[in-house]
């Protein structure tokens, strides 16, 4: 059974909000209607977003790190928001595990947001229905797009490839490998919601160079001379390289 999901690599996220804006652009332009904003150019702008990037400071200066933390609906395998919906507007697709809201059935009672521990759903104050990340369901199956473009908008937009997309149930998928090999984890595992989306932790990449590695190991007697001077007729660097 397929369970589509995102894996977000916190090690490379730079907090540029490109995923936020491209998500908003794609999802506000679709046939489901706009993601409404209020006061967009006023003093107190607010609006509906599927995806937000938050920033946390970890530790105390100077031993601190800045963590940019993108969060959207985690498409839980056992979504607590679905059974509480009184109208059946909230549902989880069997074929690919995406959790969706049928905007035509939603009565806007907001009960599902109470049942979601992650705050992943946002009420659209103008459309008066609940909205949430669709994993760009109107994009990933669109045969009119090139195959390389059949990915969620946020994934396409990320300049550092911090967002990976795939089937978390397929052990050979890119995201399953990333979760397996780079210590992928789920948010708030204590509630047993089994989020499909995973996060890759911050990792220190260090290269330790020993002094003996700075010298050629195969030149123990240090008899290397200077390279022979090139012939004046040989091609120069400018002739062989574009740079």
């Amino acid at each position: 059974m397929t369970q589509l999901a995102l894996v977000i690599d916190l090690n490379v996220c730079v907090g540029c909000h490109a995923c936020v804006t491209s998500c908003k652009e794609w999802n506000t332009s679709g046939s489901a209607g706009p993601l409404c904003d209020e006061n967009p150019y006023g003093a107190d702008p607010t609006g509906t977003f599927f995806n937000r990037v938050q920033t946390f400071e970890i530790g105390q200066y100077p031993n601190s790190e800045t963590l940019h933390f993108p969060k959207s609906c985690l498409h839980c395998e056992d979504p607590p928001c679905v059974p509480v919906c009184p109208t059946g507007a909230s549902y989880k697709r069997k074929e690919d595990g995406i959790v969706l809201v049928d905007y035509d059935k939603c009565i806007g009672c907001k009960y599902c947001t109470w049942a979601c521990p992650y705050g992943a759903r946002e009420f659209d104050e103008k459309a008066k229905v609940m909205k949430k990340c669709t994993l760009c369901v109107d994009r990933i199956y669109d045969q009119s797009l090139d195959e390389i473009d059949r990915k969620p908008s946020c994934v396409k937009a990320c300049p550092t490839s911090a967002r990976l997309f795939g089937d978390v149930h397929d052990p050979e998928s890119e995201i399953s490998k990333a979760i397996r090999e780079d210590g992928g984890y789920a948010l708030m595992p204590e509630w047993g919601t089994h989020p499909a989306n995973h996060y890759l932790p911050r990792r220190k990449t260090k290269l330790k160079i020993h002094n003996d590695e700075l010298e050629r190991a195969d030149n123990p007697l240090k008899v290397d001379g200077l390279l022979p001077k090139p012939n004046k007729n040989d091609p120069s660097m400018d002739d062989v390289s574009a740079w």
Binding site: V20, P45, R52, T55, F56, I58, Q60, L67, Y185, L187
Partner: peptide, 17 residues
């Protein structure tokens, strides 16, 4: 957020208003 550090402070909520 899955970060096991005792001191974590939020600096941005991802929205202004």
């Amino acid at each position: 957020i899955g970060i096991k550090h005792p001191q974590i402070v939020q600096r941005s909520k991802g929205a202004m208003g």
